[in-house]
Design a protein around this nucleic acid. Structure first.
Lengths: 346, 346
DNA sequence: CTGTTAGCGCATTCAC
DNA sequence: GTGAATGCGCTAACAG
C-alpha cells in the first residue's frame, strides 16, 4: 500500500506534518534528533512523497515531455538516451510519448493532416500532466510549422524544425564536405554521388557539401556523376549500375546513407568490381550493419547522443526563461573502415 | 499560461465548477445548452485539466512506469512500441525511465550491486509519481530476484525475470528447434552450432531446442559440432574455422545470434567457402543488418512487439487485481532468406 | 438538472 | 525549533 502519507509519518514520529516536510525538503533547520527520528520513520514505513500533491502545491513538476514520432526508427533511441543523460544531470524527469507514426500512417510524412490528430493528443496529454517543456523528435527532417500548439510552453525540435522555434540539427553540409575531403585526400577525383530523395532537406544540404568540395578541390564537374536516389537500397543498386555504364567511371561513390551503400555493394558484387580495390564507397549514418558488411564500410557517424543532449540543454534554458544559446551545430564524424582505398592507377 | 483552472471556466460560463467537471468527465447528465456553452469556453480558453489535481482526487493516474535497462539496445524500442500499442488501446499512459546501464556500467550485468542504486531510484521516482504498475525491460535474460521492491505495486518483467513475478519471454527452445527443423527439411544432417555465452539462459534454452531436434530427427550426434561462443562476431569467426578443421565438416551452421553469423560469413569468405552453396548459415534475432548482408541471412525473428504488448496486457490485469492469464509463450518466426540451401551432394 | 462544499496529500505562511 | 491552518485544482457526495 502506498497509502501512507506525510501525516502518518508525522503521527508516528510525534511531530507535525510541517516538520516532516521540512526534513524532507531541507527547507528549514530541524533539530538533529528530531530529524533523525523522522528519517527513521520514513525509512521504516517506506514512505514516498506523492508527486501529484507536490506538483499541485509547488508550481513545478521537474518533468518535460518527449514526443517521438516513432521510437523504432534507428536514430531515435540514441537521441532519447542523450536527452536522458542531460535530464538526469539537471534532475529532470521525462514523460515519453511515442506517436508510432511509422506503424500508423507509414512513410507518408508530408501529409501533416494524417497525424495532426496524434500530435495534438500527445501535446494535450503532456500539457495536462504539467510538463514544463517539450522535445519533439521527428523521423525525418522537415518543416513542421503549425503542427503543434503548446500554449506558450517552450518546445525544442530535433530531426525537424519550425519557423519560429528552437531546433537542433547536426551539420549535414559539413558532413558530406568532410566525406568528400576524405575521398580527395585518398586521391579520388571522379567521385559519384547517390542522393537521398530530393524533396528531403538533408539531401539538399549534403549536396551543398558535395558542390562545395567539388569547387574547392577543383574536381572535374560532371553532371552524369550525380544520381538521385530515394534512400532505399534498390536505388543504390540501380544507380551504381548506371554509374558504371559511363565511359569514364567514377573511382569512388558517396552514398547519402548506408542503406544505399549496401545497394552499391550489391551492384559491385554482381559486376565483379572489388571494393575498395576497384571502387571506394562511403556511406552515411553509421548504421549498426555498416560494421558487419564485408568489407566494413566507411561512413559518417551521426552525433545523435549529442543532439538529444543539446535539445535538453536548450529546453532547460527556455524553461528558465533564458535565451537558448546558439552553439555551432553538432558535427558528424568520419568512421574510417575498409571500403575506401586510393584509386587504382590503371 | 496554463494557469486557467476549472473555476475560470466556471466563472466565464456562468456555472459552478461542478458542472464543468461533469461535462468534462461525462459523470452526469448536463443540459445540452449548458454543456455546449461550457465546451465552447473550454475551447476558447484552451483549457487543459490539471492532471496532478485529478490524480490527487481520483485514486487513479492511468499511468504505468516502464523501466528500460537501456533503450539503445537493439530489441528495446520495439518492445516499447508494443507496450505503447497496447497502452493506447486501454487509455493508459507511460512514464519511461532509461537506466542507461550500457553506458554507465557496461556489459557487466551480473554485478547487480553496481546498478541496484539506479534501479531503486527509478522505482522510487515512479512510485512517487503514482504509477499503477511497472514494466521492467532487461537487456539480457537473467534472474533479477531481489533487485526491486515495488511496495506491493504490480510489476511485469520482460527480457528478464524474478522468482515470484510475472515475466514475459519468447520461446527460445521452440525457436532453435524450428531453425533446426528448417535445416533438416533442406536436407542437412551434419549441423554445427555456435552458442552464445554459456552462462546465459537463452543459450541454454536454444541448446535444448537443438538437442531436441538432434534426437527427434535422429541426426548424427557429434560433440565436435558444438561450439561455445560468446555472442560476439569474433567468436563466430573463430569457431567456424575450428568447425572447418574437422575431418567431416558440417554442411550447415546454426549461430545463436546474427552477430556471430557475421563471423561465420567472414570465416567462410576467407576460406573461399561459398554461402549457401558450400555452407548454409542460419542466424537469430533478425537484426536489421541481417537483410543487408550478402547473401542476406536467414534468421529467426523475435516477437518483440508482441512481448511488449503482452507485458502491458498482463500488467493491466494485475492492476485490476485479476490473475495474469498464462498464455503460451510468443514464438519466434523463421525469416527465409538466402543463406540456406540444400547441402551439396559432393 | 445544477450548485455547494469537503477533502485528496502536500508545502508553506504565520503564529508560537 | 515546531505546529496549526490554509489552499493548490479538482471530483464527488450532498443539497436543492
Amino acid at each position: 500500500m502506498s497509502e501512507i502519507g506525510i501525516k502518518d509519518i508525522a503521527a508516528k514520529a510525534n511531530v507535525s506534518t510541517a516538520t516532516v516536510s521540512y526534513v524532507l525538503n531541507g527547507t528549514r533547520n530541524v533539530k538533529l534528533k528530531t530529524r533523525e527520528r523522522v528519517l527513521r520513520v520514513i525509512e521504516e514505513m517506506n514512505y514516498k512523497p506523492n508527486n501529484a500533491a507536490q506538483s499541485l502545491k509547488r508550481k513545478r513538476t521537474n518533468t518535460i515531455g518527449v514526443i517521438a514520432e516513432d521510437v523504432t526508427v534507428f536514430n531515435v533511441p540514441e537521441i532519447i538516451d542523450g536527452i536522458n543523460d542531460c535530464a538526469d544531470r539537471m534532475d529532470m524527469h521525462i514523460l515519453l510519448t511515442n506517436l508510432r507514426l511509422d506503424k500508423r500512417i507509414g512513410r507518408d510524412f508530408d501529409r501533416v493532416e494524417s497525424y495532426r490528430h496524434y500530435a495534438d493528443n500527445a501535446v494535450s496529454e503532456l500539457l495536462s500532466k504539467q510538463v514544463e517543456g517539450i522535445i519533439y523528435i521527428g523521423v525525418h527532417p522537415r518543416d513542421l510549422t503549425g503542427l503543434i500548439d503548446t500554449s506558450g510552453k517552450p518546445i525544442v525540435y530535433t530531426y525537424c524544425y519550425t519557423q519560429k522555434d528552437v531546433s537542433i540539427q547536426y551539420h549535414d553540409e559539413q558532413a558530406s564536405y568532410e566525406a568528400m575531403t576524405y575521398l580527395v585526400t585518398k586521391g579520388h577525383k571522379r567521385i559519384g554521388i547517390i542522393s537521398g530523395a530530393m524533396d528531403s532537406i538533408p539531401s539538399r544540404l549534403r549536396f551543398n557539401g558535395f558542390y562545395k568540395a567539388v569547387t574547392e578541390y577543383e574536381l572535374p564537374f560532371d553532371p552524369q556523376l550525380i544520381k538521385m536516389g530515394n534512400w532505399e537500397a534498390e536505388s543504390g543498386y540501380r544507380l551504381t549500375r548506371e554509374l558504371f555504364e559511363l565511359e569514364v567511371r567514377p573511382t569512388a561513390i558517396l552514398a547519402m546513407n548506408d542503406v544505399m551503400a549496401v545497394g552499391v555493394m550489391r551492384a559491385a558484387a554482381e559486376m565483379n568490381i572489388q571494393i575498395p580495390r576497384d571502387l571506394s564507397v562511403i556511406g552515411f549514418d553509421n548504421r549498426e550493419f555498416s560494421e558487419y558488411l564485408i568489407p566494413r564500410i566507411t561512413t559518417m557517424d551521426l552525433p545523435l547522443h549529442e543532439i538529444g543532449y543539446r535539445a535538453m540543454e536548450s529546453l532547460s534554458l527556455l524553461i528558465k526563461g533564458e535565451q537558448a544559446e546558439l552553439k555551432p551545430m553538432p558535427k558528424c564524424r568520419l568512421i574510417e573502415r575498409d571500403s575506401v582505398a586510393p584509386p587504382r592507377t590503371s
